[in-house]
């Protein structure tokens, strides 16, 4: 899943390959995945299914549920709250997280942050950015705040 809301996932791509035995779906070139209000774009996305055969879910035979997704090449992740880009994006169903690594840029409203690793917890809606062996850079645009609201703290790794 790429959205905490769940629901059907709509996929567009130039090429796809469904591999029954490995229980994988590979999407290649101009991959555009939408689910609920979240969207993931990348050059290539591989979806791994965790099925071992029959599952409780009616209608599914063999493939089971999505276990993880790996997006590679100019990865964009967009929700109404944030936009994030990175080199590689990984969704982990068990942890219910999407992790972007590489040259990570996170944009929220007018604030921009860069780092090496961004972890987004879908259900909780919590995002953690860390600089890896470098620093996290924050660029916060202080716009007119109502009186009494404390400015955002300066995070350091």
């Amino acid at each position: 899943q790429i959205s905490g809301e769940g629901g059907p996932i709509r996929v567009n791509a130039d090429t796809s390959e469904v591999m029954e035995r490995q229980r994988q779906v590979v999407l290649i070139d101009n991959v555009d995945i939408m689910q609920g209000n979240a969207r993931l774009r990348a050059d290539k996305v591989t979806i791994y299914y965790g099925g071992t055969g029959a599952t409780q879910t009616a209608g599914m035979s063999g493939f089971g549920d999505i276990e993880s997704m790996v997006a590679e090449g100019e990865v964009f992740y967009v929700t109404p709250d944030l936009k994030a880009t990175g080199d590689v994006g990984t969704y982990d169903a068990k942890a219910d997280t999407i992790t972007l690594t590489g040259e990570v840029v996170l944009v929220r409203g007018e604030d921009v942050a860069t780092g090496r690793r961004l972890v987004m917890r879908l259900e909780e809606g919590r995002t953690t950015l860390d600089g890896g062996d470098g620093q996290v850079q924050f660029n916060i645009s202080p716009n007119e705040r109502p009186a009494g609201e404390a400015p955002a703290e300066d995070a350091s790794n």
Binding site: I9, R10, V11, N12, L27, I47, T55
Partner: peptide, 26 residues
């Protein structure tokens, strides 16, 4: 039949957990 390759304007609708898990019409 183990591999299905699709080319050109690939549009998919994937139902995580199975088609009926979301009450989706077949």
């Amino acid at each position: 039949g183990d591999r299905l390759r699709c080319r050109g304007n690939v549009n998919m609708m994937i139902f995580p957990g199975g088609r009926d898990a979301h009450g989706n019409a077949s």
